[in-house]
Simulated scan of single mutants.
Amino acid sequence: MPPRRAVTGRSQEPRQRYAEELRLLRAQKGDSLRQLGDALGWDWSLFGKMESGQTIGGPEVAEALDQYYGTQRLLLTLWELAAGDPTQFRERYRRYMALEAEALSLWHYGVSTIHGLLQTPGYAHVLLTAGGIKGEELTRQVEARAGRRKLLAVEDAPPFRTILSEAVLRTPLDDAEQWRKQLEHLAQAAERRNIILQVLPQGSAPHGLVSTDVMFLRLPDGRTVAYTENAHRGELIEETSSVERLQRAYDAVRDLALSPAESRKFVTRMLEEVPCEPST
C-alpha cells in the first residue's frame, strides 16, 4: 500500500492539489487514462478532466480511486477540500454558462425561482438584490441575465423544458407591476414552439427533487450534464451515473406536473390575480 503523503509540500490550492495528486498516482501506477477508465468503469475522459482541473468529479469517484490506488481516504479528503473551496462555485458556474451556450436541449426544474433564461430584468434585479449584490455588480448581473434570454429567442433556439413548482408562481414580487411583467413574459414564452412550461402543483407526491433546482444540458458530444443549485452554492455534475440518477428523479417530477396546456392556463390564472395599479 502506498504511504499516505502529507497534504503540505506541493500546491496549497485545493483544486490544483487534488489534480496534482491524481496525476502523480496514475503515473506511479503506469496506467493510461483509458486503462484507468476500463478498470473503474467510468469514461476515461472524466479522469482526464479531473487531472487537468476542469472538474473534480463526484465523491464516489474519489472513493473508487482511493480503493484502486490503496490511498485510504486521501483522495476523498482532497476532494472534500476542493468541493468546499469558495472559489469553486464561481469556476463551476462559469463552466456551466459555457456549456449552456452550446447545449442542444435544456431541461429545468425550479423549486423556488424562475430560471434565469426566463427572467425579466425586474425579477432578476429583486432576486440578485435579495442575495446581497449591489451597485455596479448588480447592474452587470442583471444585464447578463437579460442577455442570456437571447439563447431561447434566436431562430434556431434549442428546445427548453421548464417545470416550476407552484410555489414559484405563488411567491410574487412586492412590486405588482414587475410581477405582472414577469408572469406575462412567462406566458408569452410558453407559447413558443421551442419552450415547454409545466407547473408542479402543491400537494403533489414526494419526489427526489423536493429541495433541488436542477438544469440538464444535452451537449453536442452526446453527453448530458446537470447543474444543481440552492441559495448558497451550485454544482456542475458530469459523472454519468450521478446525472442518470437525477434524470430519473426529474422524470418522476414531470409525471406529477400539469400538462403544458393546463400549465399555460395556470399561469394565466395567476396573472389575473395580480392586483391592478390604481388609476390616477
Rank of each mutant, 00 (worst) to 15 (best):
E21Y: 04
G131V: 05
R149H: 10
T87V: 06
L246S: 02
L65M: 10
R73P: 09
P275K: 04
L236S: 01
C276K: 08
L271P: 05
W44F: 14
V225D: 04
L169M: 12
P14Q: 04
F89R: 07
S165C: 09
A130D: 07
Q67H: 14
T87H: 14
D85H: 13
E244A: 12
R223M: 02
W79C: 04
T268D: 14
V168H: 02
L217D: 01
V7M: 05
A205M: 14
R34H: 10
A167F: 08
T55R: 03
G58T: 02
P220N: 11
T77Q: 13
G110M: 02
T212W: 04
L236Q: 04
G110H: 02
W107T: 03
S32N: 11
S279T: 12
I196H: 02
L106T: 13
L36C: 07
R15W: 08
R161W: 15
E21G: 00
V267P: 02
D38M: 11
G132M: 07
L78D: 00
L40M: 08
R245T: 03
T87W: 07
R269E: 15
E277Q: 14
Y250D: 02
L46A: 10
D213N: 15
A153D: 10
I237C: 03
A62V: 06
L138C: 10
P121C: 13
M270C: 13
Q16L: 12
H115V: 08
D66I: 07
V243H: 01
D175N: 15
S45Q: 12
S45L: 12
V7R: 03
Q198G: 03
V214K: 01
E100F: 05
E238C: 02
D174M: 05
L138H: 08
L118T: 03
R233G: 04
D221W: 04
H125D: 13
R140D: 15
D31T: 06
S52H: 05
T55H: 06
A261V: 09
H232M: 06
L209V: 10
E51A: 11
T171V: 06
L117H: 00
E177M: 12
L25M: 10
T55P: 06
L197M: 06
T162V: 15
P158L: 07
S242P: 01
D221Q: 11
P59L: 10
Q119T: 09
Q178N: 12
P159D: 10
L40I: 14
G70A: 09
E272H: 11
A64N: 06
E63C: 01
R140H: 14
R95K: 12
S279F: 00
D43W: 04
L78T: 00
E184M: 13
A39W: 14
M97D: 08
E277N: 06
D31A: 03
R254D: 14
T139I: 10
Q67W: 11
R233D: 08
Q182K: 13
E80R: 15
D43M: 00
T280N: 13
H125C: 07
P278S: 07
D221R: 08
